[in-house]
């Protein structure tokens, strides 16, 4: 079990997004650049380092959908907007700032099934992921071949293979993410649910944009 999960369990809470990202990075799953800010000044400084436009999210240990509770502000263009946003979120545990990117939005996730144990999921991500229902599932552990097979099962695979103005992506990077996620699930069965939506497929690689773990 990962030490962060151990600690969260001990403290009777869910891991925060920065903690989830740390776990993901430990398992070789790349996350989008980010920094945590606890004060206005700090927020301004990290936003400038990252470069506008940015995304600002509240840090919470309750595992809720942050956008459902108004905890996500997108496309913040400058310092004034950033300060306004920071005040609006009133986040006691601070905020997480990340660059605003656009790419192919993927849903990558996992959960513990009562009958079959660990399951990983891959498909079309974004706000409407549940409406599109373009998701392939596999029971863990999975190898690279199985990961490839599940990617090929989805419609988003056609987009990732190069569609209209979208350049073809390196599918092997997604394969790696899925195999690593499977490892994370197998080694941490205490995590009931992992939600990495959206994960961005950019021309330079695949990066987790949001992470939520339920214990």
């Amino acid at each position: 079990m990962h030490r962060i999960i151990e600690r969260a369990l001990r403290e009777g809470r869910f891991p925060t997004e920065p903690e989830c990202r740390e776990i993901l990075e430990d398992y070789g799953i790349p996350v989008l650049e980010y920094a945590v800010a606890k004060s206005e000044e700090e927020a301004v400084r990290v936003a400038e380092e990252i470069g506008y436009p940015v995304v600002m999210k509240i840090v919470t240990a309750k595992g809720e959908h942050k956008s459902d509770i108004g905890g996500v502000l997108l496309n913040i263009k400058d310092k004034d907007e950033l300060i306004k946003s920071f005040r609006e979120l009133k986040a006691p545990m601070g905020v997480l700032i990340s660059p605003m990117v656009s790419g192919v939005e993927l849903l990558i996730g996992a959960f513990q099934d009562e009958q079959f144990g660990g399951v990983v999921a891959f498909g079309t991500g974004g706000k409407f992921a549940e409406v599109y229902e373009d998701v392939a599932y596999r029971i863990t552990p999975i190898d690279a071949d199985t990961a490839m097979e599940m990617i090929r099962e989805t419609k988003v695979y056609r987009i990732l293979s190069g569609y209209r103005d979208v350049k073809a992506r390196d599918i092997n990077q997604i394969v790696k993410v899925l195999v690593n996620l499977s490892k994370l699930v197998e080694e941490n069965p205490e995590i009931r649910e992992i939600d990495l939506n959206p994960t961005f497929s950019l021309p330079e690689g695949v990066f987790v944009g949001d992470a939520r773990f339920i214990l």
């Binding site: 009562e114 009958q115 599932y137 029971i139 199985t146």
Partner: peptide, 15 residues
Amino acid sequence: SMAGKDVVFEAACRQ
């Protein structure tokens, strides 16, 4: 019986 999640059973069959 527990019907369970159909998508998971589908995955189990494929695998």
